[in-house]
């Protein structure tokens, strides 16, 4: 019975609409970017064995992400497997997002 309710629940869940306004888009990108913090630190600012990604030029970040996603010859480890899970537009948005995070900002 519980299973059936769960099923009913999933079926009736309204489809997620495209978010229109910029504020919602910003929140959406921030949520997408939050996954990056697990290896690159909060806001992508932790520099260590794994490099920081905050406050780097957007083009550099974007090129790197595109190479991870599209190049088979990359010598990278986990990033090619991860980058393929995002659309090109999402990767561009992530590059923009991290390029705008100031390195001096409080964590």
């Amino acid at each position: 019975m519980k299973t059936r309710f769960a099923l009913t629940f999933a079926l009736l869940l309204p489809a997620l609409p495209a978010l229109a306004d910029d504020q919602a888009n910003a929140a959406q990108t921030a949520l997408l970017a939050a996954s990056c913090a697990n290896c690159h630190g909060t806001d992508g600012k932790l520099a260590g064995v794994i490099p920081a990604i905050a406050n780097r030029p957007a083009t550099a970040l974007e090129n790197q992400l595109m190479e991870f996603k599209h190049s088979d010859s990359t010598r990278a480890t986990v990033m090619p497997r991860i980058a393929k899970g995002y659309s090109d537009d999402e990767l561009k948005a992530l590059a923009q997002y991290f390029s705008r995070i100031g390195s001096a900002q409080q964590r």
């Binding site: 997620l16 609409p17 978010l19 919602a24 929140a27 959406q28 949520l31 997408l32 996954s35 990056c36 697990n38 290896c39 986990v78 991860i82 899970g85 995002y86």
Partner: peptide, 10 residues
């Protein structure tokens, strides 16, 4: 409305 979620795992 809730945002569209995504998760990573390594």
């Amino acid at each position: 409305r809730p945002l569209e979620p995504s998760w990573a795992n390594t």
